[in-house]
């Protein structure tokens, strides 16, 4: 039972057709989320992680389009729906969006309408999906705000976003996402815009709510610390593709892909400067997004590039170890260092 995935994304391609060319924002990415599981998606800015989430929710902004692939979602009644095949604005997609699958966005400052009250914006989802009256929706909204530990929920409900702090706005966003009892919550860097103490509070809140509701969470971030704290399973994305997946421990302690390795070692560590080690950044920048690549997409930045096979042949995602998958020709041979060893050194 626990093994039937709640969400299974297969070879998803979401492309942006622009006058300058085609941007392959998501280019054959796969992902699997079990009920109640927390999956972290990690990657640099522009690697397609946000577009992936928007593809699942079917809110990819124009001119982006899902070109191919399947997004299989197991509904509460056990029926499996291919979200990718639904009409983006159709009734079927909208019935799932916001009710069964919901999303928290990165910027609590701009993600709420400045001219509508908090209560209006949260209650709207309740009226839409649960057919509540205005009055009932308001009572539910106050309850939802209470659940996210919003102080003075009874008053906040009638306030405008500009009247409350960033952390409170993100709480309101979470209340909005959770008010209809979703089975899958997607969080797009929900704490990036917040200061560190607020970030810790919000993360703790999300964990608590997940324990209470048992929903699955897909957590997008570029912060590996947050991933370690929040998730069980990690997906590393690079240029619209999944380059490595695995349980969080395996990824951190035994990375198999050079990109994962580079990401792990670009985290600043205390005492590093005294030890004479320099902060390592991932070499080079992201290539021109309009370029179509032959060979491994990471090859131009990879220190292990063999100059031959890596440039010619795109590696496939393949299993290494029990639950780990990696997209590298030389995954087994590289013997990459995980984080623990680096810290003790």
């Amino acid at each position: 039972m626990a093994d039937t995935p709640l969400l299974k994304v297969e070879d998803l391609c979401t492309h942006y057709h622009l006058p300058q060319g085609t941007v392959r924002a998501v280019d054959g990415a796969s992902l699997s989320v079990k009920p109640g599981q927390t999956v972290g998606i990690v990657g640099e800015s522009g690697c397609g992680k946000s577009v992936m989430l928007r593809s699942i929710l079917r809110i990819v902004p124009r001119p982006g389009r899902i070109e191919s692939g399947r997004i299989l979602y197991a509904r509460a009644d056990g029926q499996v729906t291919d979200l990718a095949a639904l009409d983006q604005d159709g009734r079927a997609a909208r019935a799932i969006r916001g009710a069964e699958i919901s999303m928290i966005f990165q910027e609590p400052m701009t993600s709420l309408s400045p001219v509508h009250t908090i209560g209006d914006q949260i209650g709207e989802a309740l009226i839409l999906h649960r057919d509540l009256s205005r009055k009932a929706a308001r009572a539910e909204t106050v309850a939802a705000l209470d659940r996210v530990a919003m102080p003075r929920a009874e008053r906040i409900v009638d306030m405008y976003p500009h009247e409350i702090s960033g952390g409170m706005r993100q709480r309101a966003m979470i209340a909005m996402a959770l008010c209809c009892g979703p089975r899958l919550l997607m969080a797009d860097e929900p704490t990036t815009a917040l200061d560190v103490t607020t970030q810790a509070q919000i993360l703790a809140l999300m964990r608590r709510l997940q324990e209470e509701d048992g929903m699955a969470i897909v957590f997008v971030t570029h912060d590996l610390g947050v991933v370690a704290q929040m998730t069980e399973f990690v997906v590393i994305m690079y240029l619209g593709r999944v380059v490595e997946t695995g349980p969080v421990r395996d990824i951190y302690y035994r990375p198999k892909h050079p990109y994962t390795h580079a990401l792990l070692h670009s985290i600043p560590k205390l005492g590093q400067r005294r030890a004479g080690a320099r902060l390592q950044s991932v070499k080079g920048g992201l290539p021109d997004p309009y370029l179509t690549m032959t060979g491994c997409p990471f090859a131009p930045r990879c220190p292990h590039n063999d100059g031959d096979r890596c440039e010619r042949e795109a590696p496939a995602l393949r299993s290494v170890g029990a639950a780990q998958e990696v997209r590298c020709h030389y995954a087994e041979r590289l013997d990459l260092q995980g984080v623990r060893k680096a810290v003790t050194a």
Partner: peptide, 16 residues
């Protein structure tokens, strides 16, 4: 139209 709050509303499942 390109503001984040529009996307939030879309994610709620409102019709376009």
């Amino acid at each position: 139209l390109s503001q984040a709050y529009v996307e939030t509303a879309r994610a709620k499942g409102l019709s376009e």
